[in-house]
Structures are given as C-alpha cells and as structure tokens.
Write a protein that binds this DNA or RNA. Structure first.
Length: 275
DNA sequence: CGTGCTGTTGCTAG
DNA sequence: ACTAGCAACAGCAC
C-alpha cells in the first residue's frame, strides 16, 4: 500500500538497518522482465564498494545516497516491496533487483505488478532529476503553506480530489489518503477546487498533514522486525474511515458511504456529512 | 473459465 | 484548462 506514509516508514526502517553498509554487488534478477522502465545496465557496475551514506525521500521516491556520488532511486509503484534478508535467502517470485552488502545483508526489490522503477542519478544533480522537476510541494514541509494551497486551488474547476492527487500540486497524496482527508474535512470529492471557502481550504490542509503524520506514526510503531522474511516489509495495517467502505455506515452520521469513479479511480464519501 | 477491480504515474487525444 | 482513456501487470474477489 505504498503512499507517502508507507514510503516514509520504509525510509525510516532502512535508515535504522543499512546505514554505513558497503555494497558488494548490485544486480537485476529478472533481466527478461522490465519494471515500469528498464533498469539501466550500468547500474550493476556503479555501486560496487560504495558506502551507504544516507536515505531520503522525495514524493514517493526512496533516495539512497552513496559515498561514490551516486543516489539510487526506488519507486514502489502499486505493489513494490523492499525486503532485507540474509545471504541464505532464496529469491522468490517477483524479486527483481538486489543490493548485496559485504556483511551478508541484502536488500531485495520485489514487485508483482512491476509498476515500480529503479534508477540512479548523480547526487549533486538530484534536484534536476527529470522525475523530480515537475513535482509540487511536500505536504509535510513548510512549502505546503496555507498561501501555497490557496494559490493551487484558485480558479481550478476540476474536482478537489483530483487537485490534491496531482503531484504537480502536492506530492504523496494517493487515492486512499485523498478520500480520507476529504472525509475528515467534510468536503465532497466532487466539489470544484475553486469552490472551497477559506475555512475549508484551511481544514483540508490541516487534515492532509494530520492524517499523513498519523499514518507515519502508526507505521513506525506497527512493524516489528523489518528483517523477517515473512513480514510484508514496510506495509502495515490501516483502519480507514471511508476508503473501501462502500455501502457501509458512515462512522459519523450513519448514512451509507457512496463509491463513485473520478478519473477512473474509486472515490468514497459520505453524501450526508461531506458537502 | 471469465470479468472486473486494485495502492501509480505519465502520456495522448479530444 | 480540464477530462477521459490508456499503458505497463499480477492477483484476487466474484
């Protein structure tokens, strides 16, 4: 379930587990299968003997920085998982890419649907990385100010749900947290973005931040041992208030939750308390 | 056996 | 500016 909180949680876990490790080798297991884009062939030679310096995140991209001046970039797509295993681990179905460290630990990228991507870039040029240049504000940064949000919504006639999911505006809000934050703000996902009044804009911004932070907090506390091969490696059980609850009772007013499609994606909302 | 959905992103056509 | 549709895919519910 990789939205921003899941990716952040994975980054935090990796930071605790693999910082300062030295790469022994990097390789793609499934050379006959592509992820969303082909993995560059040169990746296999580029990280040998590199020391892992730091891990950061931009939008839903995991960025792993090494002392050789390169940054490994991982995006989980819809089904990507990052596993940490020992050297006796037997590769299984949908394992695609491996980063082996010289202490026997290995990081494995597993992705059933193969919508994810693995790439690398020179660390010093990372802000100009072509997948980052058109990204909007990080929702948990100061850049996502009330003024910024107001400006984004101004004059936009598209449904508010699409506006908050558009990475050119704000990054990291996927289909689930879009529905959840609109529910918490009592705003219908169908409303035109420009129709929100000042109070609603402020409420929605507050709820986006609050819900993402809460999910990160839960993620940090609910994963036990990241190295266990039976775990789902960074994903955790959520309890959503509106997402996926079609025809069930609204937890606030007991009306029935409705499911509609917007831009091909499911939206869930309560017709009674979201206006 | 289908059929229709699913957490992403980015592109194209209208 | 905005929308719909599509493309990449495996897995699962029905």
């Amino acid at each position: 379930m990789p939205e921003l909180p899941e990716v952040e949680t994975i980054c935090n876990r990796l930071r605790n587990q693999i910082l300062n490790k030295i790469v022994k080798e990097a390789f793609q297991i499934t050379k006959h299968l592509n992820l969303r884009y082909p993995i560059s062939k040169s990746i296999e030679d580029s990280f040998t003997n590199a020391k892992l310096l730091s891990i950061s995140r931009r939008s839903k991209y995991i960025i792993i920085n090494f002392d050789n001046g390169l940054s490994l970039i991982i995006h989980l797509g819809m089904s990507g998982k990052v596993l940490l295993e020992g050297d006796n681990y037997v590769y299984k179905k949908h394992d695609h890419f491996v980063l082996k460290f010289n202490d026997g630990v290995q990081l494995i990228y597993n992705d059933a649907r193969r919508f994810g991507l693995i790439d690398y870039v020179q660390t010093q040029h990372i802000t100009n990385y072509h997948r980052f240049t058109n990204l909007g504000a990080e929702p948990l940064s100061a850049e996502f100010s009330l003024a910024y949000f107001h400006k984004i919504l101004l004059n936009k006639k598209q449904p508010i749900k699409l506006t908050i999911m558009d990475n050119q505006n704000i990054v990291g809000i996927g289909n689930i947290y879009a529905s959840e934050s609109l529910f918490a703000s009592k705003i219908s996902p169908l409303r035109a973005a420009c129709s929100l009044n000042d109070d609603e804009v402020e409420m929605l911004r507050d709820k986006i931040i609050e819900i993402l932070k809460e999910a990160i907090k839960q993620g940090g506390s609910s994963i036990k041992d990241y190295r266990n091969s039976d775990g789902e490696a960074g994903y955790f059980q959520h309890y959503f208030k509106v997402y996926g609850r079609e025809k069930k009772e609204c937890i606030v007013c007991e009306d029935k939750i409705i499911k509609v499609k917007q831009a091909g994606r499911a939206s869930f909302y309560c017709p009674a308390c979201q206006n």
